[in-house]
Write a protein that binds this DNA or RNA. Sequence first.
DNA 1: ATGGCTGGGTCTCCCAGA
Length: 256
Amino acid sequence: MRLATWNVNSLNVRLPQVLDWLNQHQPDVLALQETKLPDERFPQAALEEAGYTCAWFGQKAYNGVALLSRTPMEDVQRGVPGLEDEQRRALAATIGGVRVVCLYVPNGQQVDSDKYRYKLDWLAATRDWLQQELSVHPRLVVMGDMNVAPEDQDVHDPRRWAGQVLVSPPERRAFAALLDVGLQDAFRLFPQPPKVFSWWNYGAVAFRRNLGLRIDHVLVSAELARRCRACVVDPGPRGHERPSDHAPVLADFDLA
DNA sequence: ATGGCTGGGTCTCCCAGA
């Protein structure tokens, strides 16, 4: 089973790239973030034509998440249960016996801002939800744009970024608290080359000089960690014309 | 080069992203 996550920064703009990428990589599941589409504009027909059934949870202009699957989805959950949140950032479904959670974690904008506090509160509520999910789904995968670079090796210039949003200690603790419920960063289950990132600022040099962060993640339960065979970032789409600022992350599993 | 880009909406300016 191949699972993937991609912050597309507007599914309206990126739909042709998503269709190309699905055709090229044939994932069983693709989690999307920042679709930026109200639900009535979700491109269901084009994605179904490509062989994917869809669940989506969108809003106008901002946020928005979706799950695409080659096989049927059950028990679709929209939003973090129990969290009052007008922003549509979470979506879950059970696919082939695997509970799949798609997250678009708030950016936080600036340390100590209202948006930063919202981010930390959101992560705390999500942690509680994932703990519940794990208690009933031993095969749990949580993937998406987590907006946290977990360690300095996930940052192109840790000294310049020290203390800033996306790397600040409270954010890293909140991310570690997600792992503490019983999840592992699939990317770090394997030897990886240095300086692998999943996001690069728009602009002339950031991608060319690999000035990025690794903030898009696939987190897996112990049972899925045992069955995980690979986890890689695909920087290809970031080099295309009119790219998203994020690259997709893929993980392969051997599910007997 | 930490955003000196991009997408969307209120639409030639502002908000938000990361």
